[in-house]
């Protein structure tokens, strides 16, 4: 691992200033469950780490008023266990609950989780074994070197949003649920504060897969806000994995329904595990509006959500699996009481 300097400022303003002073190679670090991991693999090589977890006041969950507000440093475990979140927004609680082990949820923060790096095996050099570093080309890790996943062992790769440069899946669960719920992130950077719809935080890989987020240099996430909606109670995060628990998604769906009897007034649907960024399924949402929900319509919506998907060699199953995951999520959510 490349040597780095380490500091732990006490305020967000100090952290931003420290980032500016540190110059090239500066990086914020929160829980470190993603960043320290990829540092050990020599994929990311920061020269200056600015630990933001010592900043006071960013670890509160506020549920009053017309929105939920999560300070960026709330541990994932605390957000997953919050009573209001559990009762009124199961889609959010479940996305966290299914995202990791309790050990990692205690370490990882709800802000840092939004910036988790992909689990693409080629990005991680095949095995996670540091001795394999450099064995595989990867445009995300080393721009311009090519993509070993395309034409390679691509069972885990994306079927939506991929480019000729990169097919890596966006790994998160929480971001998918937040995209479905129209969340925003509050940012602080050298130019001050701004708010950004969370869907706009993520880039498609295109020709520049090394650029995953739209944060400006030195910007940090300070909070996540979720507009309150009664649809939150009829919601779920449905996640299909290779094993029953503690694994990344093969396919997942965040669904929230505004229902009038058995008729859908409005649906929110986002997909994980199948796309290169958290994927809002607007066409599927539109298909459901005003209609009576049954198993056939749910599956039709699932297929609409995966319309335009393109498979590689070994990941074609994700198209059918993704559609059925959405369909099952719709039925689960509709079965919940508002």
């Amino acid at each position: 691992m490349q040597p780095f300097s380490y500091q732990s400022p006490r305020t967000a303003d100090e952290a931003v200033a420290a980032f500016g002073r540190a110059g090239p190679g500066a990086s914020y670090i929160a829980g470190g469950t993603s960043l320290y991991d990829v540092m050990k693999l020599d994929i990311v090589r920061p020269r200056h780490l600015i630990d933001v977890t010592g900043i006071g006041g960013l670890d509160r969950i506020e549920t009053g008023g017309d929105r939920l507000r999560f300070g960026a440093l709330v541990p994932m475990s605390a957000a997953a266990a919050d009573r209001v979140v559990l009762r009124d927004y199961p889609v959010l609680a479940e996305s966290l609950w299914k995202a990791a082990s309790q050990q990692l949820r205690n370490m990882a923060t709800v802000g840092g989780n939004l910036l988790q790096r992909t689990r693409c095996l080629y990005f991680r050099n095949g095995t996670g074994n540091p001795s394999a570093v450099g064995s595989y080309p990867c445009n995300k890790r080393a721009p311009g070197t090519g993509c070993a996943a395309i034409g390679g062992l691509d069972r885990g790769q994306a079927v939506l949003g991929q480019s000729g440069s990169c097919t890596a899946v966006s790994p998160g669960d929480w971001p998918v649920a937040l995209v479905a719920m129209d969340a925003s992130v509050e940012l602080l950077g050298p130019a001050g504060t701004r708010s950004l719809p969370i869907a706009d935080l993520y880039r498609l890989p295109g020709d520049t897969p090394q650029l995953e987020f739209t944060l400006a240099p030195g910007e940090m996430i300070t909070a996540i806000t979720v507009p309150k909606t009664p649809a939150g109670r009829r919601s779920t995060y449905h996640k299909i994995r290779d094993r029953e628990s503690y694994a990344f998604a093969l396919a997942s769906a965040a669904v929230a329904l505004d229902m009038d009897g058995d008729r859908v007034r409005a649906a929110r649907i986002a997909l994980g595990g199948v796309a290169t960024k958290p994927w809002r399924a607007a066409a599927a949402e539109a298909m459901l509006a005003g209609r009576q929900l049954d198993a056939d319509l749910a599956l039709a919506a699932g297929r609409a959500a995966l319309a335009g998907a393109r498979a590689g060699t070994h990941n074609g199953f994700k198209i059918e699996l993704g559609a059925r995951t959405v369909a099952d999520a719709l039925i689960i959510a509709a079965g919940r009481t508002a």
């Binding site: 732990s8 469950t33 630990d51 050990q103």
Partner: peptide
Amino acid sequence: LDGRRVASCLTLAAK
């Protein structure tokens, strides 16, 4: 760590 379980391999000792 402070009463909560963590993975010590992914915890910077500095923390």
